[in-house]
Simulated assay, not measured.
Amino acid sequence: MPRRMKLAAVVASTLTAALLLAGCSTAASDSSTDSASAGGATIEHAFGETTVPANPKNVVTLGWGSTDASIALGVIPVAIPFDSYAGDKDGVLPWVKDAIDKDGAAMPTILPESPDEPPYEAIAAADPDVILAVYSGITEEQYKKLSEIAPTVAYPDQAWSTPWRDVVTTVGTALGKSDEAKKVLDGIDAQIAQKAAEHPEFKGKTLAAVADSSGTFYVYKKNDPRVGFMFDLGFTNAPAVDDLSNGDGTFFYTLSYEQLDKLQADVVLNYATTQPEADAFTSSPQTSVIPAVAAGHAAQLVGAQNISAVSPPTALSLPWGLDNLVDTLAAAAK
């Protein structure tokens, strides 16, 4: 199942298979504390705390979003992860390439695909000052191995669940650029607020975000980063999303086709990698029983890049994909 389908494909192979699943809209994370000393910042996370050297230059990023946040804050990483779901032939996402090209910088080293373990040798070869895995799925054992290479910042609580704004603020803390991080977020918030003002029809409507992949139906929970920022557009979480939850995932759960008629929402947003998948969602006897689908209120976000841009959003991808998402939601909300 796709990560951004499930996270919607969860890292490389899970990212390709799970990618229709993962930004929340909470403010700066309490887990990041800027101990502005000569030694840099000390950041608390799921595996303890990490002290980052002041003004790190050689930055390696893992997982999702840390690359984009670092670039948005003016620090081009020396090595970034390969994206097999929505990246180009070199594994580079379009908004990342655009930002690096605009900066006139050289493309970072693209780390080799490594679904089960971080590519330790390639990371060490990049000689990092810090490794940023703020939104990732690294285990405690992997964190310890990475920390032997360089100070490593993991996620604050659960894997693949860091609110997208917290990714930006935590990376800002790590890089000694907290003020710049606030400016980046203020700019994005202004864009979201403008879209909300342009679409008053969103206000108060209930939303359920879903994906139907390879015979399994996924529902994304309200704490999933891909869902949270849509509340800023005016939508509210459909009560059925909570009522039907079975607790089988941190940011999503699976739902049997026999229960889809209970998924009540004013708008259902479906993530589909291809147009045939999107067409099947609205025409299939199994999924067409969803009340919003039957009523013509299914929003279809189609294509790996469009899905990845908001699943979950990042400092670079949200501005890149916001217009397309809003247009898709507006067509379904009428």
Rank of each mutant, 00 (worst) to 15 (best):
A330K: 08
V92S: 10
M1S: 14
E148Q: 15
P119S: 06
I100Q: 07
S29P: 11
D103A: 13
L316S: 03
D266A: 03
F229A: 01
K221I: 03
A17P: 08
W160M: 05
N55F: 11
V59N: 09
G176V: 02
S35T: 11
V167K: 04
I43P: 02
H45Y: 13
A332Q: 01
A122I: 00
K57N: 15
S256M: 08
K222Q: 12
V52T: 07
G39E: 14
G39K: 13
N270A: 13
R165A: 03
P313E: 02
A209C: 10
G215D: 11
A304P: 01
S214Q: 13
I100T: 05
T282Q: 14
A309C: 03
G296E: 04
V78D: 15
D101R: 13
T254N: 12
D83W: 09
V130N: 09
A208T: 02
G234N: 07
A126S: 12
P77A: 11
A79E: 12
T51M: 14
T16N: 12
A299S: 02
Y257C: 03
K177R: 15
I188K: 04
L322M: 04
E277D: 14
K102Q: 13
A280D: 15
T173I: 03
Y120C: 09
D224R: 03
A22L: 14
V267R: 00
G87L: 01
D68L: 09
D98A: 13
A125C: 10
E201A: 09
V52R: 06
K221F: 05
L325E: 02
G249S: 08
H45D: 12
D127E: 15
G39R: 08
G234I: 04
A193C: 11
K222T: 06
S317V: 00
A27N: 12
K182C: 08
T173V: 11
W95I: 00
S25I: 01
G321P: 03
S161L: 09
T169D: 15
Y253I: 00
I290G: 02
S66L: 05
E258R: 07
S288F: 06
I71S: 07
L15D: 07
T33R: 12
P276G: 09
T328N: 04
A309N: 02
A27R: 12
P239D: 04
A294Q: 07
D30T: 05
I80Q: 09
N246S: 10
T61S: 14
F82W: 13
E140S: 10
M1K: 09
A292W: 00
K262T: 03
Y143W: 15
A159D: 10
A125P: 11
P2Y: 07
A46L: 13
K6R: 11
Y257W: 08
E113W: 02
T109S: 10
P81A: 10
G296F: 03
F47N: 10
I71K: 06
P81G: 12
E148D: 15
S32P: 11
S84M: 10
P319H: 04
E113H: 04
D129H: 08
T282L: 12
L62T: 04
D101E: 14
Y220T: 00
Q259K: 15
E141D: 14
G249W: 04
A8S: 14
D243V: 00
L73K: 05
T173F: 13
T67V: 07
E148V: 06
D157Q: 06
I100A: 07
N324L: 08
A72M: 06
E258W: 08
A208N: 04
P276R: 08
V10P: 08
Q194L: 09
N58D: 15
D279I: 00
A12N: 11
D323L: 05
